[in-house]
């Protein structure tokens, strides 16, 4: 009984060796990406600053999470669906008890979770919002024009992670080891492609926001 072809073997493969492979590729790729950014650095700036960089930079890291009122008015669908699925994804990722246990197992830190039916509801909403973003991407002239194969790949993997999680929790795929294995596999695919696709923004967006806030902040503008 060592075959990969049976559900439990598949689950244990995804929970075991594949998880380590995925995490290793993720760590390697992400640190490479971060090193690429941070080591490039910035040239010295001789212009007399109007204000410091750190505080405005950190403020922008936080404030860019929500749009300015004008942008919200001009692109409500884009903003709302984007926010909903990001929040939903984070709630499901960080506040679902089994995930908290996983994080505790990995890093030794944990926090309180939310009741499962609530996370389940959030996940369902997230799936709907994700589907809406795809429809929007396929129809909005700007997003259609911007989209590349990568965008659709990333959407698919993200959607699969949430979908398989939803199916596994609700036990809609049987047997359960297969369902859980598919969910873990999707999450591993997500981790593997993360450093090489736009998913990097999960980490680099904060660096980008800081640079933006720092650059504007130096000139006396809270960006």
């Amino acid at each position: 009984m060592t075959a990969l072809t049976d559900p439990m073997g598949f689950l244990l493969f995804t929970k075991g060796p594949l998880f380590n492979i995925a995490i290793a590729i993720f760590a390697l790729g992400l640190l490479a990406r971060l090193a690429e950014i941070l080591l490039l650095g910035r040239r010295p700036n001789f212009a007399e600053p109007r204000a410091g960089e750190w505080l405005p930079g950190l403020r922008t890291v936080v404030t860019r999470t929500l749009p300015d009122p004008g942008t919200f008015k001009r692109a409500p669908f884009n903003v709302v669906t984007g926010l909903i699925w990001h929040i939903g994804f984070l709630v499901a990722l960080l506040l679902f008890i089994p995930h908290i246990e996983l994080i505790k197992g990995l890093f030794g830190v944990s926090w309180p979770g939310l009741p499962n039916p609530f996370v389940d509801l959030v996940t369902a909403v997230t799936l709907v919002a994700l589907a809406a973003t795809l429809v929007h991407r396929l129809n909005h002239p700007v997003k259609k024009r911007l989209s590349t194969v990568e965008d659709y790949l990333v959407w698919t993997v993200t959607f699969l992670v949430v979908l398989t999680g939803y199916l596994a929790y609700n036990r809609l795929i049987n047997p359960y080891p297969l369902a859980l294995g598919l969910h873990i596999l999707s999450a591993e695919l997500f981790l593997i492609i993360l450093p090489f696709t736009k998913l990097t923004h999960i980490f680099t967006a904060f660096i980008a926001r800081w640079y933006n806030g720092a650059s504007f902040g130096r000139r006396g503008v809270q960006s």
Partner: peptide, 23 residues
């Protein structure tokens, strides 16, 4: 059940270090 079975922190650290080196 959700915790990976053979977590190898050294492997992750090694991969991370290699990544930082490559990057």
């Amino acid at each position: 059940l959700s915790v990976p079975t053979d977590l190898s922190s050294t492997q992750v650290l090694t991969a991370g270090a290699a990544g930082a080196l490559v990057g």
